[in-house]
Write a protein that binds this DNA or RNA. Sequence first.
DNA 1: ACACTATTCCAAGGATGATTGGAGAACCAT
DNA 2: ATGGTTCTCCAATCATCCTTGGAATAGTGT
Lengths: 217, 217
Amino acid sequence: MGDRDAKNALFDQFARVGKALASGKRLELLDLIAQGERTVDALAKSAELGLTTASAHLQTLKQANLVVTRREGTKIFYRLAGDDVAALFALLRTVADDRLPDVRTAREAYLGDDTDAVSRDELLERVRSGRATVIDVRPAEEYAAGHIPGAVSVPLDELADRLAELPADQEVVAYCRGAYCVLSHDAVRLLTAQGRTARRLADGMLEWRLAELPVAV
Amino acid sequence: MGDRDAKNALFDQFARVGKALASGKRLELLDLIAQGERTVDALAKSAELGLTTASAHLQTLKQANLVVTRREGTKIFYRLAGDDVAALFALLRTVADDRLPDVRTAREAYLGDDTDAVSRDELLERVRSGRATVIDVRPAEEYAAGHIPGAVSVPLDELADRLAELPADQEVVAYCRGAYCVLSHDAVRLLTAQGRTARRLADGMLEWRLAELPVAV
DNA sequence: ACACTATTCCAAGGATGATTGGAGAACCAT
DNA sequence: ATGGTTCTCCAATCATCCTTGGAATAGTGT
């Protein structure tokens, strides 16, 4: 066996990435950042964290080089360092979901009943044939940072007030951030309660990007 | 935004997997376990850890369901819970290597000069055309748990004494555990010092399995 | 220069994790 | 049963991380 100190040093370096992924708060921040660049303040509010707490977590993500920053005036925008980081994040969640029974129960508690979902291929096919209206129920800024071509931005907040914009005789497909985002679940429940035919995309923008499907801006 | 407690609970569950990957020691244990099932004692010795320390780390890996155990008499064997875990582990290392400059320096310090390596495709092609002898320089037990078809087991320990077995007029390709395993580097250095023509596979058994290439047992 | 905004840095408390030795549990052999 | 082997559990110490408020920094606007 080679040099023990050098080996420890190498594996400790790998562990830096693991450590960055070892906090639920940081994973939630990554989930938000994966949707597009955001300021510290916006991230803190979205994740319901104190500003300094959010900043500290963002620093650890930054020190692991999973995110990079850009300054614009007094604001600092955080974004993912690359698609490989998004892939790692997505795989972590998939492995956790497949391996840990507690993830499944926590997921069901958070997202609610798992209404039957549409796959990415089905969504593409429905859009092409004009059989469905696709709505992006994320906040408008995330839609602006990139969305599924042909999708209309209807943030969940505004959905109840904007029902009239959606054709009543056509199926609505809602999507949001990713496989564990609650927005599309809430949207489908709201639409169904209003008598509309609505389903959700099985995952969301994160997985859409990773599948290298076209993204509109 | 939905139920904050439920959302925190979900992301904390994801973080359980991150926490399991947040220690260099545990990553080293995973690296070993990925080669095939091993007992606690064997893992502790290979990773140069105290028995109780190794056991404690293995417990955290087990509680994250990244590894599973099997009892055989007084011995307990640990193995990976699935290929997805190996894929996550490999991706973590790739991301770390691509993103963290310190990983590159630590890697070079541990592995030594990066001799030019052979890709998996090149190796397959050389074996088919009989232009190379492939040697597996991992410990014999790891070879026994699965190896590249056609490879000969020559553990690094025995390599110096078994030079005569290797054809002097043919190129030797050495491989070991994975992209960050030192054994094949040492083997190539030893063989080159003996005047042989030797190269190493760019990665190793971990990546070979993940590429779903044939594995012999 | 001065006030103002956005963010990071610093320090301190509490919480969580790592390591170790020794006791305990599961199993096998005699 | 007894003793031996292998591993886990427990308890204690030490180190590291999380969180928070307040101070410091970088930039903008007047």
